[in-house]
Amino acid sequence: MYHYIYEAFLTDPKFAKQLSAIENRLTDLGIYGSVHRLALFKTMKGTIQDAVRRGAKTVVVVGDDGSVARAIDAIAEFPGVVFGIIPIGDKNSFAKLLGIVDAASACDILSARLVEELDLGKVNKHYFLTSLNISGAVKAECDGRYTVSPENGGEICISNFSMDPAGPGDPRDGRLETMVKTGSKGFFKSVFARARSSSGLSVFPTHNVVVRSPDNAQMTAVADGQSYQDAEFRVEVAPHRLTVIVGKDRAIA
């Protein structure tokens, strides 16, 4: 049975028509199931845990990138549960990455049920699909064998599934790409449009990375748009942790 988790913002009347169309299409396809609506005290994590406890084998999130990121963090605790996405809202880059262009086609993609097993990244206790950016970091210890440090400060980005087609990060290779950029901030946003060899971008294929703050100060890490604060971030790859329904036009970014 399919369990659909509706993001809280979908209570806005402007989504009523679109939701109705989705529900009709799901019914036509014979894959309509149990609906859970998120609210102020009904969190994504608690709802997914509850659904899996009730025997859910397929959990579908109806929402945007923020919904997908929180759902992945929760569903990664239950390997074998299949994850699906129906994108609604303004930001749906994760769905597009998986070949799910819009809500209408998402229903047919769910019905076709083309499943991929993808690696996830794990930072401390949280899972992420795409990448992790750590600001204020000065040194990264990679695979317990060597350390990497930008000599005059820089940024550290750890990629599992690159949003950029030319960027490093394949979610099926069992590795994370640790990237270190010396120089200007905001670099990672446009870096892959340029040649990497002369750009000042270092790339290290790794399995686990530890980033510590030099003076035990709090650092901020942003993974899949979710922010975390800590003095130490332990990042590792979780191979084949996410079983996800994908579209034909999925792209490794």
């Binding site: 087609p165 270190v180 060899s197 270092s202 290290f204 294929p205």
Partner: peptide, 20 residues
């Protein structure tokens, strides 16, 4: 999954200004 030509793969780059 599709991967564009020239994507990183197994390649490691240690750029100028980075110490390993």
């Amino acid at each position: 999954f599709k991967k564009e030509e020239g994507a990183a793969g197994n390649e490691t780059i240690i750029a100028n200004g980075v110490k390993v």
